[in-house]
Design a protein around this nucleic acid. Structure first.
Lengths: 188, 188
DNA sequence: GTCTATAAAGCGATAGAC
DNA sequence: GTCTATCGCTTTATAGAC
């Protein structure tokens, strides 16, 4: 039983870690209650629609974090090298160098994908759009830019899977460095 | 309710699809019963240790399929180009061009990873070893071979995640073609 | 806003008839 | 080998006291 929690803003990150660790199906109200120090009554006070609302709001909070810290800088930058470097560093910190899993990816793979299909789709689409447009602005053709951007996103997701499967965070850091290199390579 | 099933050999693939679609936690005995057309009594006749045994045997069957169709050919081939092409084609067929998810990856991301840690770790390690040794035999340095091999595995996993998240199987096929190219590129 | 108590349904697993 | 019935427990969710 952790320390009780005052506001909804403090609540969402704790909920996020439970969903990350157990997936949507595996995240029981008991686990959530234990992680937050709040009884079920209190949880339903904050989230009248229950578990689904909790996950929806957690996804929205994650989306908001990436919007501010990753997507927006990508959109407003005129310097591809600096922007890519900043994205890589932000991603490395967010995923704790491969020791933290991507909740959006976890949900994308599971049965709960249908329930959150729009949020999952949007998160990756907006990331992909922001990144590929940055590459386009830097002189790359639209198709090549889109291709490199998609490759970057999928490499990050795959690195999280493999790093966890092999219990080797170095896989993630190495993949991030590869991503950076491929993103900034001269046009083919 | 699907048609009843006679032997254990017919049972495992059906179980596999349920675990794939719902994850370990989400795969309830009711869903399994429905998918196989077998009552719980029959399921426990085949798998006395219940759900955990089912998943263990499904993972073992998947591992066996990859051992025969992917890993072994990689180990015995002297022709890297042909071997990589055969691997890519086998992977494309197995994952139905990105429309089917990787159960080992799904479990690696979830809370049930600890329960199946050895099987998950072994699957990827043996794949990685077989592939990186093939590249070494073809003249690549051991470090570069290992690096390219890891990159290939993680790209496949990430492509499955992103293809599902964006509901776009083309992402998977394109990623496979990239993997093939990077695997067979001349030494840096 | 937090709690306890509880409802109703579903869970994994078992027993025993056939 | 398959089934139904059932056990004991946990699940999500609600009600109502404080």
């Amino acid at each position: 039983m952790a320390k009780p929690v005052s506001g909804r803003a403090e609540l969402l990150p704790l909920l996020g870690e439970v969903f990350r660790a157990h997936g949507y199906e595996g995240a029981t109200l008991s686990l959530i209650s234990e992680a937050t120090g709040l009884g079920k009554g209190s949880l339903y006070h904050f989230f009248p629609d229950g578990k689904q609302q909790m996950a929806t709001e957690v996804l929205a909070e994650i989306d908001g974090w990436f919007e501010v810290n990753i997507f927006a800088p990508l959109r407003s930058s005129g310097d591809p090298e600096a922007a890519v470097a900043a994205m890589i560093e932000g991603v490395d910190r967010y995923f704790r160098s491969g020791r933290r899993v991507c909740l959006v990816g976890v949900i994308a793979l599971g049965a709960s994908r249908d329930m959150f299909a729009v949020q999952v789709h949007d998160y990756f689409k907006r990331w992909n759009d922001a990144l590929s447009r940055l590459l386009s602005r830097s002189g790359l053709g639209a198709r090549a830019a889109r291709q490199r951007s998609t490759d970057a996103l999928l490499t990050i997701q795959g690195a999280l899977v493999l790093a966890r499967a092999l219990d080797d965070p170095a896989i993630f850091r190495r993949a991030l460095s590869d991503v950076s290199e491929r993103l900034l390579a001269p046009p083919d």
